[in-house]
Structure formats: structure tokens, C-alpha cells
């Protein structure tokens, strides 16, 4: 059983998920009040002009026919044309994607760099100061709305201190505020999960065996505690990166970061059906890919998972 074959099977299994997600979002986007044809035509347009635009866009057809049309064009690799920008949807997404990837990776990197050591340390020394800091951080991170943190950051660092830019993506310094804001949001969960996972691994019986063998405490920590604690940590990291790659909608909007998230908001306000559908489809796709990657990582860490995966792949 090769890895390539396993991935192929997983991708095939993802097709029904994709179709289902497309159906849901196709309907949801159209349930929104508002009419793209009227938005394009402008407030003073004649009814017949609006009708003409509607026919051009295919919006006069019954919903199920629209869906069939959409599906068949996707199968041909055509994700439609943005109503607002009049460019192919795929081009719009690709233009914004580098920004979203940069922001996502920067935020996750900051979060991991702080949360993992903090979580591990506070699990080993549960009564230390670091442990209390970790608890407070988790609580704050989990309970503070992100737009509020974002606005406070803008007020402090951009308005009062004037040391960092508040919006846009013109220079590398522009990424600092949105990345740190997002990282704060991620850190809380990541610290909490890391702490719990390491504590559980520390208390397991095989650690007692490792001590009784005469292994040193650093070897025990790395081999017999951290490796076993990695599965929940990787899961949460996968979910976080997946969510971020789908566009950190609120953060990108607050900081006017030109990524996928702000593009999605934009397309929804404009009732740009093809663009909104394209973006959501992309987000679903990203989640599926991240899921496959985390499963492969599980298999790498845990031989029991490896066996189950290979067996599932063979049948």
C-alpha cells in the first residue's frame, strides 16, 4: 500500500463532501436577500435592463438548472466569472491567496512558537508561574472577540504610538498587527490542548517504565511524552491552519488585509454569486486537504493508526 494510493483514495472519498458542500452554499448564497442584476444595473435602471442582465448571468433559470450548469462548468475547470470584477473567479482567488497564506503561516508560527513551549512547561511544572500565565492566556484568548483585540491593537500601536501601520499590505511591517492578533486567538487553544496532552502523556504508565529503565529525563520527555502527546496537538494545528487558509475573515477585514477572507466578505456584499461560490468551494477544498495531511501525520506518529489506514486503503 503506497502513500500515493492512500492519498488518491482519500481524495476520491472527498468528492461527495465537496458536492454536498457546494449544494449547501449554492442555496445559501441565493437565499440572501438582494439581486445581483439590480446591483449591476444600478438603482435607476429600467426593469427590462435588469431582466436582460439576469438572463445574461443565467439567473432567470430555475435553481436546479443553475446548479447543474455550475457543476458542469466546474468539471470543465471553469469556476465562472466574477460579476463585480468581470474577471475569472480563479484569477481573483489566486491573486489574493499569497496574502492569506502568508498571514496564516505567520500567525500559526507565532502561536506555535509561544504556545507549545508554554503548554509543555506548564504541564511539567503545574504549579509554576508559567502555568498560571498559560491558564490566563487560554482564558483571554478563548473569550476575547478578535475584532476587539484588533481594534485595541490598531488604537495602541497605530494611532497612539504610531509605530506600526494599521491597514493594508504594502510593506512587510503591515503583517505584524494582523498576525499577532490572529496568533493571540490561536494561542489560547493551542496552549490548553498542549498542556492537557502533555499532562496525560506524563501520567501514562509507559512513562513509569521509561523511568524504571534508567532513561534520562530529557530522553523520556522527548521520546515517551512529547511524541505521544503530538496527536491532539497536530489535530488542533491542522484545524487552525485550515481555518486560516480559508481566510481569517474578521481579522482581514479589520486590518484591510487583501486576503481570501476580505474577498469573501466583499463578494457577499456585492451578491457576486460566482465569486462567493468559488471562494467557499476553495475553503472546503483546503479543509479536506488539511484533513488528509493531518491523517498522514497521525499515521507517521502512531503505528496503530498506520495499520488502520493501510487496511482501509487496501479494501
Amino acid at each position: 500500500m503506497s502513500l500515493a494510493r492512500y492519498v488518491g483514495i482519500r481524495v476520491a472519498q472527498a468528492i461527495p463532501t465537496l458536492v454536498g458542500a457546494m449544494l449547501v452554499m449554492f442555496v445559501l448564497v441565493r437565499i440572501l436577500p438582494g439581486d445581483p442584476a439590480r446591483l449591476i444595473a444600478g438603482p435607476e435602471a429600467l426593469e427590462q435592463d435588469v431582466q436582460r442582465i439576469r438572463e445574461q448571468l443565467g439567473l432567470n433559470k430555475p435553481l436546479y438548472l443553475q446548479f447543474v450548469d455550475y457543476m458542469s462548468s466546474i468539471l470543465r475547470g471553469d469556476f465562472g466569472t466574477s460579476i463585480k470584477y468581470r474577471t475569472p473567479v480563479i484569477d481573483e482567488i489566486m491573486a489574493r491567496l499569497p496574502y492569506t497564506i502568508t498571514l496564516a503561516l505567520a500567525a500559526e508560527a507565532i502561536a506555535v512558537a509561544i504556545a507549545l513551549p508554554l503548554g509543555i512547561y506548564s504541564a511539567i511544572k503545574p504549579r509554576s508561574k508559567a502555568s498560571y500565565i498559560a491558564s490566563v492566556l487560554s482564558l483571554v484568548g478563548a473569550s476575547t472577540p478578535i475584532f476587539w483585540i484588533g481594534l485595541i491593537f490598531i488604537y495602541v500601536f497605530a494611532v497612539s504610538l504610531r509605530i506600526l501601520p494599521s491597514s493594508g499590505a504594502d510593506t512587510p511591517r503591515h503583517i505584524i498587527l494582523p498576525a499577532v492578533t490572529l496568533a493571540l486567538l490561536l494561542m489560547g487553544n493551542l496552549t490548553r490542548i498542549t498542556r492537557a496532552a502533555v499532562m496525560e502523556a506524563l501520567g501514562s504508565n509507559h512513562v513509569l517504565t521509561a523511568i524504571s529503565k534508567g532513561l534520562g529525563s530529557r530522553v523520556i520527555l522527548v521520546r515517551h511524552v512529547l511524541r505521544n502527546a503530538m496527536i491532539p496537538i497536530i489535530t488542533i494545528m491542522g484545524i487552525q491552519v485550515g481555518a486560516l487558509l480559508g481566510g481569517a475573515v474578521i481579522t482581514e477585514t479589520v486590518f484591510a488585509w487583501p486576503g481570501i477572507g476580505s474577498l469573501l466578505i466583499d463578494s457577499l456584499f456585492y451578491r457576486d454569486y460566482p465569486l462567493a461560490q468559488g471562494i467557499i468551494l476553495f475553503i472546503v477544498f483546503v479543509f479536506i486537504v488539511i484533513n488528509i495531511i493531518t491523517d498522514i501525520l497521525y499515521a507517521y506518529i502512531d503505528p496503530r493508526v498506520r495499520e488502520v489506514l493501510w487496511r482501509a486503503g487496501r479494501s
Binding site: H206, I211, S212, K213, N228, I301, P303
Partner: peptide, 19 residues
């Protein structure tokens, strides 16, 4: 530990590291 005094535990399934 492990060299001059060693230990055998009760429940073999949890005292080995599964990974």
C-alpha cells in the same frame, strides 16, 4: 534503575509505549 534494580509492572498493555 534498570541496571541494578528493575521493575516488572502489572498491566503489560499500558506499560509499553504504543508508538
Amino acid at each position: 534503575r534498570g541496571k541494578r534494580i528493575s521493575m516488572i509492572f502489572q498491566d503489560p498493555s499500558t506499560y509499553l509505549n504504543p508508538v
